[in-house]
Amino acid sequence: MITFINRFTVTGPTEEFERAFDETSLFFTGQPGFIRHRLMRHTDDPHTYANLAEWEDEESFRKALQQPEFAAHRAALKALSTSDPNLYVPLYERVA
């Protein structure tokens, strides 16, 4: 499993960003290897968001990004925000 963490700084209207992200989320839910994601908004800065997405493997994630339909989603988010995307592998996990 890999985790994709993308921090967004929204430069446009936050409502438009959230709507565009929701559409992107729907695209990813239909991609092979997608497990789940969460979009979170910073508690002190309403223009800062983080997306945490879990994928079965890096290959599935990369294939989803190469789908022709993803280009429109990428453009919509880029028009409304800047981002810092990175991939991580899990090391430790504790559950209460």
Rank of each mutant, 00 (worst) to 15 (best):
D45E: 12
H47I: 00
E56N: 12
T43V: 12
R62G: 01
H37E: 11
L52E: 07
E54I: 09
D44C: 02
R19P: 00
E23V: 02
P32I: 07
H37G: 00
V95Q: 15
V89P: 02
E58K: 12
I35D: 12
S60Q: 07
D44V: 03
A20V: 07
S25R: 13
T3Q: 12
F21E: 01
Q31T: 04
F34C: 07
A71I: 11
E18W: 01
A71V: 14
T3L: 12
A75H: 11
M40P: 00
R94F: 13
H37T: 01
L65T: 06
T82S: 15
T48K: 11
D45Q: 12
T48N: 05
D84H: 10
G33W: 02
T82N: 09
R94N: 11
Y88G: 08
W55Y: 07
S25T: 08
H47C: 04
F34W: 15
A64N: 01
M1T: 08
P90L: 13
N6R: 06
Y92E: 13
G33P: 01
F34N: 07
N86S: 13
L52I: 14
L91P: 00
R94H: 13
E69F: 06
N86I: 07
L80S: 05
R74V: 02
L39A: 08
D22Y: 08
T9E: 14
P85K: 11
E23T: 08
R62L: 15
A20T: 02
P68F: 08
W55N: 04
K63Q: 14
R7A: 09
R19M: 09
F61L: 14
A75Q: 15
E58C: 03
E93V: 09
L39R: 09
L77W: 02
R38M: 10
Q67W: 08
N86T: 11
E56V: 14
T82A: 09
L91Q: 11
A72D: 15
E16F: 00
R36L: 05
R41Y: 05
E56W: 00
Q31Y: 04
D57Y: 05
P68M: 07
A53W: 01
T24Y: 00
E56Y: 02
K78M: 10
E69Y: 06
R62Y: 06
N51W: 02
R74H: 15
E59W: 02
E16K: 10
D22S: 14
D22L: 13
R62Q: 13
P13M: 00
A75I: 05
L52V: 14
A71R: 11
R41D: 08
A50Q: 06
T29W: 01
I5N: 09
V95S: 15
H73V: 09
